[in-house]
């Protein structure tokens, strides 16, 4: 039992570290702000989730595990708010995303007339 838990937390911690590294690599490679947001969301969901899950398996059924789950829930609740605020602020500041396909027809939600400026 102990052995199985150890192996599982090894797997989860390694996977979490790997996802964090992938996200960091993506943050360096992606061409513009909006695509970098996607790289960061890999870190904040999968990387964070795997590492916390690995730690919970090591902590067992204790107060420490409860605190870890609170941390995971808080990050999952706050990360999209920060990401959305960042994307919205970047759009309002006039930074337009580099697009391959624009299916909005130049129309952004909340604006009356199409703006292509």
């Amino acid at each position: 039992m102990e052995m199985v838990l150890d192996i599982l937390s090894w797997i989860f911690l390694l996977a979490g570290g790997a996802f964090c590294l992938i996200g960091g690599l993506g943050l360096l490679r992606m061409p513009d702000v909006y695509t970098r947001l996607h790289a960061v969301s890999v870190i904040e969901t999968l990387g964070m989730g795997c590492i916390i899950l690995g730690l919970v398996l090591q902590a067992g059924f204790t107060l420490v595990a409860a605190k870890l789950i609170i941390i995971a829930a808080l990050i999952l609740l706050t990360a999209p708010v920060a990401t959305h605020a960042l994307a919205q602020a970047a759009l309002h500041a006039g930074i337009l995303p580099k697009l391959d396909h624009d299916k909005t027809g130049g129309h952004i939600a909340g604006e009356d007339e199409p703006s292509n400026s």
């Binding site: 909006y34 947001l37 996607h38 969301s41 890999v42 969901t45 999968l46 999952l76 990360a79 999209p80 708010v81 990401t83 959305h84 994307a87 919205q88 759009l91 952004i108 939600a109 909340g110």
Partner: peptide, 14 residues
């Protein structure tokens, strides 16, 4: 929030 939380899609404006 679910859209933003899913990697690969970010809601920009609402």
């Amino acid at each position: 929030n679910s859209i933003t939380l899913t990697p690969g899609t970010v809601s920009v404006e609402l």
